[in-house]
Design a protein around this nucleic acid. Sequence first.
DNA 1: TTTTGGTATATTGCATGCCATGAGGCCGGG
DNA 2: CCCGGCCTCATGGCATGCAATATACCAAAA
Lengths: 238, 238
Amino acid sequence: MSTPKEEADALVAPLPLTPLANNVSFRDQAYAALKQAIMDAEIYTHTRELRLDERQLSRSLGVSRTPVREAMTLLEQEGFLRTVPRRGIFIVRKTKKQIIEMIEMWAAIESMAARLATVNATDAEIGSLRTLFDEFRTGTPAEHIHEYSDANIRFHQAIIGLSGSHLMGKTIENLFVHIRAIRRLTISQSDRAERSIVDHMRIIEALERRDTELAERLVRQHSLDLAAHVEKYCDFLE
Amino acid sequence: MSTPKEEADALVAPLPLTPLANNVSFRDQAYAALKQAIMDAEIYTHTRELRLDERQLSRSLGVSRTPVREAMTLLEQEGFLRTVPRRGIFIVRKTKKQIIEMIEMWAAIESMAARLATVNATDAEIGSLRTLFDEFRTGTPAEHIHEYSDANIRFHQAIIGLSGSHLMGKTIENLFVHIRAIRRLTISQSDRAERSIVDHMRIIEALERRDTELAERLVRQHSLDLAAHVEKYCDFLE
DNA sequence: TTTTGGTATATTGCATGCCATGAGGCCGGG
DNA sequence: CCCGGCCTCATGGCATGCAATATACCAAAA
């Protein structure tokens, strides 16, 4: 015989359902689609200007202009687009100075993240870096630049993750969209790939030894080296 | 007698004009107005939830909902608002953890800015910090907390400015909107104001001596001290 | 009294149409 | 050939109306 309480429990049917996906508004979908399209555009491999059209995009996405406009408003604030009234909406190509600023900002954030990681992360979390590192090392740089570059970025994002700072993760994410676009153009130059592997190994060791100052310095220097490299050899970026 | 080349040069009239300010769309005006209103809302001095209404705001601003919506889309992405479909739009009150993350990010950026400043800034630019410092010191903390706090923030923004990084300036600007809101609540506690003056003086001296490592360390520690203070004494933040 | 179902209301999401504007083409004059 | 004025229309900015739905309230049944 069941008590009233038990009957009630049986009736509410505690099926473990996921709360449906509420945040898939057309605006957010358009935002994601446009951002992906911009990332895939390989904007630094050619020089013609890339113009978008609200109406055409809304037709392509099958929604009205309003959510597309709102998505483009977001992308404009993030620095991916620039809208000029009555001229069009253009994909922004970053100048060399802007890219260097982004790399310096990356250096600032990731070095602080490394500092925090030596204090906050568990040994297991730090240890997981070695997995990513293997992934990174085994990708033969010259042949699989895409996979190599992506593994590289995942490694750095993992360090940010170790800091436990959600804000840093979110900020770096957008920077990497830009940096990734030019990284493929720089990673194959000189012996940067080889040196990256050494740098990454040293960073892991410093984190494992909880050497706060060293980890911070190594991470910072690794990024600033890239900035210096871009400064010297990437004049093709305007 | 002038050559044709010289005549041409004379005709082009190289007046250094600014490209006019075209960005005064209703959307941008609404964005500025709303952001200011949020900053003035003193959201941390009371606990009731703050809801906004699209239509009421559009009536207040004298425009339609569309530009207001786009402005709110921006503010939502910047973390000032949170919209819940068919519920309303709410001003976000940051949790203690989020505020600490913002202060850590501030520490990351400003310490890197100090590093860059020791390399890039001119003596005159660094010297201008002393002006701000006097402004900061003469504001008697206990009596004019607002002016004091604003002068404080201007000092830190000036350091970011010395780095020459536009990106860092823009990023810090939004962080400070949040940090300013709680700074007034913390600056009067203990002897933080007195120590800030000492810290600022040491930072200026390190910059003047172009001591990259020291300047970076002092700036970082100054910010991280605030983070630790908030961690210890600001439990009222949720 | 408690619960359940229905309905009114409030509020955002989206679609659509109009408008102001200026970029670019065209033409006529020099 | 060059230049300036005019016209057209593409295009982003904005206003507005409809749709969807979360919430509150109420009435009726258990």
